[in-house]
Amino acid sequence: MTKAFDMLELLGDHAEGVSAARAAEVTGHPFSTAYRLLGGLVETGYADFDPSTKAYTLGLEVFRLGQKVAHRRGFAGSSKDLLQTLTRTTGESSILSVRRADAALTVLTVDGPQFRTTTDPGDESPLHTSALGQALLAHDANVDRTVDALVLEPRTPQSVTDADELRAKLERIRELGWAGQSEENDVGMNALAVPVFDLDGRLLAALALAAPVFRRTLDELVEFVPQLREAATAVAARMPR
């Protein structure tokens, strides 16, 4: 176990990535041991492997756990002020999420003045039920294959569990430029999300507004699409390339 932690520390010190050979050299482990340890970290999500460069980097599982700790310690985040402005101007909770396997991983939230969000940094929501997940899934380069592989379990009676129905919804999301859901992910909650793209059109994240159904209908949330898109552009400018 200590060797695995040593390997995580090494990956943390090499943000650009490190090869198995280099990892063995730095740690003093035999190549076979370093290769096995790195493979185990990749399998569990604590490391990523790039076949083109043969380099290992820290995985999103480390980020997910770090977010849990950061949230408990009041971590603000580089885009916190942007979400705070979005919440202030709309009066609703804002949420930023990134793709992690078959889920949307919450990385930042700002509660609305009258309602707390139902997700915290480090939490995950299914791609097929949450507005954030649907916004991310709609722009998957292999969306049909991904939908086929998803287990479309319902979270509420309103959740979409039919693959063809989900595909049709994802097509509408691409056409409209936003994803909306009403009580599909959490009973009593509406949410609207837009994708966050960098200047090259690469999908970075998704940004959402969430509101209880008694305060804001989905149609009313749609009125905030311009503000949501403006905030998404600002967030993209601050995210690492």
Rank of each mutant, 00 (worst) to 15 (best):
T119P: 03
D164E: 14
T44N: 07
R229N: 01
E61T: 08
S182M: 13
A141G: 07
V213H: 10
L150Y: 08
A210R: 02
L199K: 11
A168Q: 06
S94F: 01
L38K: 12
L152A: 06
H71C: 04
A101H: 03
R216S: 11
L96A: 04
G188E: 11
E16R: 15
P113D: 08
T146G: 00
R229V: 10
L60P: 01
G201S: 05
G133K: 01
P226T: 00
N190E: 14
H128A: 08
D144H: 13
A15D: 13
E171Q: 09
P51G: 09
Q84H: 04
E25V: 02
D164N: 03
D120N: 02
A205H: 10
A208D: 12
R72T: 07
K169E: 03
P126C: 09
K169T: 04
K3Q: 13
A55K: 15
S78D: 12
P30K: 13
R64C: 05
G28M: 10
M7K: 01
V194C: 12
T119F: 13
G66R: 04
E9W: 13
A168V: 01
T57Q: 09
Q114V: 14
A4I: 12
D48K: 11
P226R: 00
F115C: 05
D219C: 03
R202F: 06
G91K: 00
H29G: 08
R172F: 05
A236I: 07
A70C: 00
G188D: 14
N142D: 11
L83Q: 03
R36N: 13
G74N: 04
T33V: 13
F75Y: 11
V110I: 07
D48N: 11
P30D: 15
D148C: 04
L204W: 04
V213F: 09
N190W: 10
E184W: 00
G74Y: 03
L132M: 10
G59H: 04
T129S: 15
T90Q: 03
T217I: 08
V222C: 06
A47K: 05
Q67N: 10
R116D: 10
V143E: 11
L228K: 01
V196T: 11
V196A: 05
L58E: 03
G66S: 05
L86A: 04
T146N: 03
A234H: 09
E171P: 05
F224E: 12
D13Q: 15
T156F: 12
Y46L: 09
G40L: 07
P51W: 07
A231P: 02
A232N: 07
K80C: 01
Q134C: 07
L204E: 09
A70H: 04
A55V: 05
G188Y: 12
H128K: 06
D148G: 07
L221Y: 06
S93V: 07
A104P: 10
F5M: 11
Q227M: 01
W178F: 15
